[in-house]
Simulated assay, not measured.
Amino acid sequence: MPPPAAALHSSQSFLAYKSSLSTISSQEPANVSTRKPKTFLQKHPLYTPKTKQNQTYTLYPTRKAESREDKMYSDHVLKNIVYDNASDFADAEMNPLETPTHQNISLEFKEKILCLEIMGVDSSRALSLNPSLHRVSLYSIQSVITFLQSKGIHQKDLARILGMCPRILTSDIKTDLNPVFDFLYNDLKVPEHYFRMVINKCPRLLVSSVKNQLKPALIYLQRLGFKDLKSLAYQDAILLVSSVEKTLIPKLEYLVSLGLSRSDVVGMVLRCPGLFTFSLENNYKPKFDYFANEMGGSLEELKKFPQYFAFSLEKRIKPRHIECVESGVKIPLPVMLKTPDEEFKKLTGQEGG
Rank of each mutant, 00 (worst) to 15 (best):
C324P: 06
K189D: 14
V269A: 02
S150H: 02
H193K: 06
P4M: 10
Y47A: 15
K345A: 04
S19P: 02
R320N: 11
V244M: 07
S25Y: 14
P334C: 04
M72L: 11
T23W: 00
A6I: 13
L239V: 11
S128A: 13
M119N: 09
L205E: 01
R125T: 05
P49A: 12
D264H: 05
S243W: 08
P332F: 07
K189N: 13
D91S: 14
V266P: 03
L232V: 14
V329N: 03
R125E: 07
L248R: 06
T48K: 15
K318P: 04
L260Y: 05
A92R: 06
Y60W: 15
T101P: 08
S10N: 12
A237E: 05
Q27S: 15
D172T: 05
T39W: 13
L158I: 12
Y17M: 00
K330P: 01
K315R: 15
I161Q: 06
A86M: 13
A86S: 13
K50E: 09
K38M: 09
N95F: 15
R316I: 11
E245A: 08
F226E: 00
H321P: 01
A292Y: 10
V241L: 09
P49S: 02
Q213A: 14
K304T: 15
N85H: 09
E314N: 00
T39L: 05
F226T: 02
N282E: 10
M336F: 02
S132M: 08
P166H: 00
K43C: 11
D187A: 14
K64R: 08
L78V: 00
K346P: 00
K315W: 07
M197V: 14
K151N: 05
T62E: 10
D70Y: 02
P4R: 07
D236N: 15
E66L: 15
V335C: 08
P37C: 09
H134M: 01
F311P: 11
A65Q: 05
L258M: 00
F278I: 13
D157N: 05
Y17V: 06
F278M: 13
T51K: 11
L107C: 04
M1W: 10
H154T: 02
Y139I: 14
N54Q: 11
L59R: 10
L280M: 10
E281C: 01
S137A: 01
V190K: 04
Q42L: 10
I199F: 02
I219P: 05
Q235W: 15
P4N: 08
L116N: 08
K304A: 14
F276G: 03
E117R: 12
Y308F: 13
M119K: 12
K251C: 11
P216A: 02
I322Y: 01
L177I: 06
K110W: 04
I322R: 08
L46K: 10
K287V: 12
E314L: 09
L239C: 10
L184N: 03
L78I: 04
L240Y: 09
D84F: 04
T101G: 10
C272D: 07
V266N: 11
K79H: 05
L114D: 14
